[in-house]
Design a protein around this nucleic acid. Structure first.
Lengths: 226, 226
DNA sequence: TGCATTATAATAGTATTACTATTATATTTG
DNA sequence: CAAATATAATAGTAATACTATTATAATGCA
């Protein structure tokens, strides 16, 4: 697995961990192995005990880094959006036309990595699987307001905000940029899941890019419309 | 609370329970009180033990009716879609124009009950809250394929299929009716949640109908487009 | 009506989970 | 090199999800 960006570090909000995991061997192991394990077991069946067995440390040690399973999930999700924002900035740099910038942004949002790449040792393909099936669980809880105050969703908000600004550049009268973006982001995740497990709830096509095409069209129509 | 439809019974798939809850007093209590409790506590903090305390029966008795917490959630979600389908059929009956039928269907999907009504004693407002915050958790699990084989999502599929057919009547060339519908259904749920808890991820307006307007537009644009 | 059959519910458990208080072991600093 | 501090392991607890077994109630039929 090729490691991208070996000289840069993705930074997430302080409220997303107890001890910054990259500061110790055990911390790094927690993050890397939790990605593999959550992708494989799903969030419900993933436990700190099982993770402890894999990394060779007791559960209690993991709690020093993350106060709960949910905080760890939020950390991974935020890490994903921080990495996405980095790519967004990189991909749209020096491009004058907001239309082309938006096009590239949407392509990034809807892209489905099939190659095996890693950043800081994190398997990007597996992380993307987690985003598709589990990320929504990090905010659909009764503790969402507390987590939100701790900054758990800042990276996601920031990412959405950045693309929203491009939309506003293109059409200053458009009233729903955030709404449109979260609709296509969460929608695209869901359609991938439906395509695999509940095909009657989507319209899977032979070509793998049907989801991208569908949502790209949706954005273009929506923004153009008065 | 006014009870609608006192002479009809919503029927859901057999795979969604161990014993049909309406056949006994305890079964009915389970369903009614679980709606109240899941709405209040959220799915994670809701337990069969707590439910048992409320209905005055031990947990073990509840397992006779539902083999797991997830099966109970799936039951409630399916009940919701069965009820929605009934309304759909009722609302669109004898209307010749597919455009008007679609309009009414979409309005139903996006409607946000504010009044206190019940059907079979189930509080429709609370059930709607559950649909918004919890329903997605019934299929975003690693056991989705097993549950699907047991018919857990049939009512949802059937509901989506029914509106899909109206879309195809209007535009036989449209390739993504299911995709469009699940996008707006799940999208609308999420936007309600965001509006309440993560407003920076949506574009909340003074008027309560902004979500409906947004998604109604989305559907109309999408179907018209070649 | 009475007794056997069957359906239903309660008791009493288990293994696992999420999490914590406390103790032990490294690592760093003066 | 000893004291201070950071880090990790041990040994727990209360609660959770679920099951096997026993008790009770309802029903069928002679």
């Amino acid at each position: 697995m090729e490691d991208l960006l070996s000289n840069l570090k993705i930074v997430v909000n302080e409220g997303l961990f107890q001890i910054e995991p990259s500061t110790s061997k055990i911390g790094k192991k927690i993050v890397l192995n939790s990605v593999d394990m959550i992708a494989e077991l799903g969030f419900e069946k993933f436990t700190f005990k099982k993770l402890g067995e894999v990394i060779g440390s007791p559960e209690a040690s993991i709690y020093r880094y993350f106060k709960s399973k949910n905080q760890l999930l939020s950390y991974l999700v935020s890490w994903y959006w921080a990495w996405m924002e980095y790519q967004l900035v990189f991909e749209t740099k020096n491009i004058v036309s907001p239309n082309i910038r938006l096009e590239k942004s949407i392509a990034l949002v809807l892209s489905n990595t099939t190659d095996n790449f890693s950043v800081e040792g994190i398997d990007l393909k597996k992380l993307h699987q987690i985003i598709i099936s589990e990320s929504i669980k990090s905010y659909l809880t009764k503790d969402v307001d507390i987590a939100n105050k701790e900054g758990a969703f800042q990276n996601y908000k920031q990412f959405v905000e950045r693309i929203s600004k491009i939309i506003i550049e293109i059409n200053p009268d458009y009233k729903y940029p955030q709404m449109l973006l979260t609709t296509i982001i969460e929608g695209a995740h869901l359609q991938v899941f439906f395509g695999e497990h509940l095909p009657r709830l989507t319209n899977r096509q032979k070509s793998a890019s049907y989801i991208t095409k569908f949502y790209t069209n949706l954005v273009q129509q929506s923004i153009k419309a008065k």
